[in-house]
């Protein structure tokens, strides 16, 4: 009997230690588990916004994981839109006039070197107020992601999900994201090399 008592207490101690230890272990894991377990939809509109997006937006024709969302409109940023004010069917526009009037600044640097895209790869040849994809669908300038995404489908997938591009102004509220052409020049989509905005000094 005398030998039995310490054993019993030892066992009790072990049990206490073991359960305590496993509880601590569960605590350490809980942060990521908590995120993974957070499946309840969050009402983004419940956050009162102090700075709603004032830029003009359009409702996107596709959905992200949270449903419908909006993209920045593009058309009012295109100088001399509508294009049909010059490009009237049946009235050809000379290349010379085009260079002088509007398209002189366009440099095509899109596609492989020596095999760059031409205008009508993206622009609708008949109706210049629209773009055109490879299936011949008319695409609105405000919804150019439908056109860009036929080649850049990985970027488009990430853009829809939120890993490419970014939201405008707010993380909460209705989702508004930048359009493809808000950041990229469609004629020369890669960002140009430039000096950084500032520099860093050694840490204190």
């Amino acid at each position: 009997m005398k030998i039995y008592f310490p054993n019993f207490f030892q066992a009790l101690l072990l049990i206490v230690l073991f359960t305590g230890g496993s509880a601590a272990f569960a605590n350490e894991k809980s942060f990521i588990d908590e995120i993974k377990g957070a499946d309840a939809p969050f009402d983004n509109r419940s956050v009162k916004l102090v700075r709603p997006v004032t830029l003009e937006t359009v409702l996107a024709k596709e959905e992200y994981q949270g449903g419908a969302f909006r993209v920045l409109a593009r058309k009012q940023h295109i100088e001399r839109y509508k294009c049909s004010s010059c490009h009237v069917p049946g009235k050809p526009v000379l290349v010379q006039q085009g260079f002088e009037l509007t398209h002189g600044d366009v440099v095509i640097n899109h596609g492989r070197k020596g095999n760059e895209l031409s205008c009508i790869d993206c622009h609708n040849q008949e109706d210049r107020d629209y773009l055109e994809d490879k299936k011949g669908r008319k695409i609105d300038f405000d919804h150019s992601y439908q056109l860009c995404g036929q080649c850049h489908f990985r970027q488009k997938r990430d853009w829809l999900g939120g890993a490419h591009g970014k939201r405008v102004t707010n993380w909460a509220g209705d989702r508004v994201v930048y359009n493809c052409a808000s950041c990229h020049n469609p004629h020369s989509p890669r960002f140009e090399k430039r000096f950084p905005a500032t520099y860093s000094v050694p840490l204190n």
Partner: peptide, 17 residues
Amino acid sequence: GSRVFGNLLDPDSEIRY
């Protein structure tokens, strides 16, 4: 667009994606 910010508890947020 290298920086993504959002609510980790919102299953539809960009950061969760």
